[in-house]
Amino acid sequence: MPIILGTILALAAIVVIAYPFFGRKRYRLVSESYLTRESHRAERLRIYRKISDVESDFASGDLTDADYQQQRDQLRVAAAETLREETGITTASERDEQLEMEISRLRDQTSISPEGGDTL
């Protein structure tokens, strides 16, 4: 019995690892352009998180008004830049619309007001 089980295991392993060579599905390595875009996307999401943290810090009184404005503006510029590189959207208004929508979604999650704390 153990030998049979071992043989089944070995055959299963062979089938699983051989399938990509003989199966119908065709594979291609992930392209450089895709990786670059994914990298930009991840960077953009990290910047959103930083914006959320900055807004949270400001709401809690950890940041002065001037520091908050400066950090938030820097991060929004960086987010717009990565969005441009990622999507190829060149129109500033289109970029701003998408950024604003995603950042406000983040605010909804963290319950921080759009003014970043001015009203809190």
């Binding site: 352009s33 875009r37 996307r41 953009r44 999401l45 959103y48 969005l83 999507t87 190829g88 929508m101």
Partner: peptide
């Protein structure tokens, strides 16, 4: 929080 950006289909992307 992301709205996945609309992208043009790139041929070698699969």
């Amino acid at each position: 929080v992301e709205r996945r950006p609309v992208r043009k289909k790139v041929p070698d992307e699969s």
